[in-house]
Computed example of a mutant assay.
Amino acid sequence: MATVLGIDERAILAAAEMLARGELVAIPTETVYGLAADATNGNAVAGIFEAKGRPHFNPLICHVSDIAMAERYAKIDPVSRLLIDTFWPGPLTLVLPLKPDADIHPLVAAGLDTIALRMPRGVAGKIIAALGRPLAAPSANTSGKISGTSAIAVDQDLGAKIAMILDAGPSEVGLESTIVKVDGDTILMLRPGGLAAEEIEAVTRQTLGRVDQRAAIQAPGMMASHYAPSAGMRLNVHEVRAGEALLAFGPERAVGHANAVAILNLSEIGSLHEAATNLFDFMKRLDITGSSTIAVEPIPFNGLGEAINDRLIRAAAPRSLSVAEMEQIK
């Protein structure tokens, strides 16, 4: 089993030393817990794919400690630089052209000529700075399953496969980062996440474009089926069926909620921020009730609601590859 350490300077240095040796370490970020490896070490990066059971066509986010590190690996256009200056460190990932001489291992980019970069807040940034190299760090969970937002959740899922878990308590944001790509005069939202589209649009004074979900994968988190519990998911319910578990939202309950085997409310006051923080943890807790289906009450699509609904739609999707994903395998 993995060694679990609380956060202090010794733990940060111990994590950096393990990463330098090519081992895997689960680290807390403000979004979710990440399964980290030295992004320049091919064997270490391959270990991420093996531990998660992650398809090799699905690229990884590369985490940096500062802008200077980002500039070593990617070409940064003026609009992306504006977003970096405004939102880094934080829950924003930018897909940027990969420099030809960058020593990021090709597995990280999954054969693409771009790299997804993020600067995390807090302890993760300190670990990267201590290592002196970027970290590839997807969410610390078995591929396709619910993302881990606590050290306990990570340990239960991946503890037997990794060396160390750093425990900083529950994740602050609770959703993965928002992923954006500047494409000429267009700014594309590749994955909604912990930074709302409205905040980006307010800074850029430009409406974000959306990517057709049938398009080829350009960034992490674009697989059709993802973030899935073992139970099936039924979304936007107004009536609960007997034997279902209920993922509730707001002060009003769906008809027949008394039929539910368990109820957890993402936010009794209807706060999307609170709902985002609770989403993955509550999905896990309802999943272990043994119910075959988790019914989910409607959640607004504005603000962080876009990212919450994105995760729920992918969690409810058929557990098979899309046409675009199949094309990536060929």
Rank of each mutant, 00 (worst) to 15 (best):
T3D: 10
V4S: 14
V4N: 13
E9Y: 04
A11G: 02
A16G: 11
P28I: 15
T29D: 01
T29S: 10
E30M: 08
A36L: 13
A39S: 08
N41A: 03
G42R: 06
G42K: 10
N43I: 10
A44F: 08
V45W: 10
F49P: 03
E50C: 15
E50I: 15
K52Y: 07
N58A: 13
L60F: 11
C62R: 00
A70Q: 04
A70H: 06
Y73R: 00
R81G: 14
L82G: 11
T86H: 04
W88N: 01
P89G: 08
P91Q: 06
P91V: 11
P97R: 11
A102H: 00
H105K: 03
L112W: 02
A116L: 10
R121I: 12
A130R: 04
L135A: 01
L135G: 00
S147Y: 14
S150W: 08
A151S: 14
A151Y: 04
Q156V: 01
M164G: 09
L166H: 07
V173E: 12
S177L: 08
V180T: 04
G184L: 12
E198M: 01
R210Q: 00
P220I: 12
R241K: 14
A254Q: 04
L264T: 11
L264S: 09
M283F: 13
T289N: 07
T293R: 10
I294D: 03
I299S: 12
P300C: 02
L312D: 02
I313G: 00
A317C: 09
P318Q: 04
R319S: 03
I329Y: 05
